[in-house]
Structures are given as C-alpha cells and as structure tokens.
Nucleic acid binder design. Structure first.
Length: 121
DNA sequence: CCTATGACAGACA
DNA sequence: GTGTCTGCCATAG
C-alpha cells in the first residue's frame, strides 16, 4: 500500500494541467518534502504507482526529460508535444512558458524570494 | 547491517 | 553552454 507521501505525490501530479510541466523537486515540495525529489522519481519508476497519472508532465529541474529516449523518453516527448509543449533544438522545455506555477506567482518574484532559504529554519 | 542504485538538484569549475 | 561533484534518502539485494 502506498504511504502518505506517495498518495500526496500522486495528487500533485494529477493536478498538473495539460500543456504544463513540473519538476521532480517541485512535485516533492508540493507533496510536503522538498528533499524527496529522488523519491518522486522512484515512485514514477515503479510502474504500479504511476497508473493513470500524467507522468509525462514531470521533468528535470532544468527543463529536460530525464528518461533515456529508448526507455520512455521518446514517448514522454511525444505526449508533451501532443499537448502543445515545445522543445528547443537541444531538447529543452522553456519552463518560463510551460512550467507549472500553482500559486500563480510571477517568476521574477519567486526568484527574489529564494523560498528554500526562507523555509530552512 | 552494509553497499549500491536512481526518471534528482544545486553548486561549482 | 558542458561536465563533475556532493548531498540526499527510500529501495533493493
């Protein structure tokens, strides 16, 4: 049975809108533990947990697909492109355009707030 | 118990 | 821009 964190991760991923992407770390943070980016990856890696999820909307923090092309990467890119997400020549997604921003906070503001440092204490 | 492994991320050269 | 290193932590063996 999935634990609490796993359930939350699934909820978060389910709430990523079509045509948007979120990073593993972002999903982990939204699920309550910003240190669990790798666990998010693990959850998606185990196929049983990702059933029914828009798993393709989760990418690396730099806007690149983390999967090796031959092991799902091509499929992920195809799914994203079918939702209107564009890739540049080097296979990178413009997170400014397609990055999911649940709070609707302006990117420039986010950068200046430096949320990690604020929540560290 | 101990080591290896990741669909990670940030820092740095 | 790229490549390397380090911290991270649940799972697997």
């Amino acid at each position: 049975m999935p634990n609490e964190f796993t359930r939350r991760v699934r909820d978060v991923i389910r709430s990523i809108p079509r045509g948007k992407v979120a990073s593993y770390g972002q999903v982990a943070a939204s699920a309550g533990d910003s240190r669990q980016a790798r666990q998010v990856a693990w959850i998606l890696h185990s196929s049983s947990e990702k059933a029914g999820l828009p798993w393709h909307r989760v990418v690396g923090s730099r806007g690149k697909i983390s999967l090796v092309p031959s092991r799902g990467g091509r499929e992920q890119r195809r799914l994203l492109e079918s939702e209107g997400v564009r890739f540049d020549r080097s296979g990178t997604i413009d997170l400014g355009k397609y990055g999911w921003n649940p709070a609707g906070i302006k990117i420039s503001v986010l950068a200046r707030l430096d949320l990690d440092k604020l929540t560290e204490d």
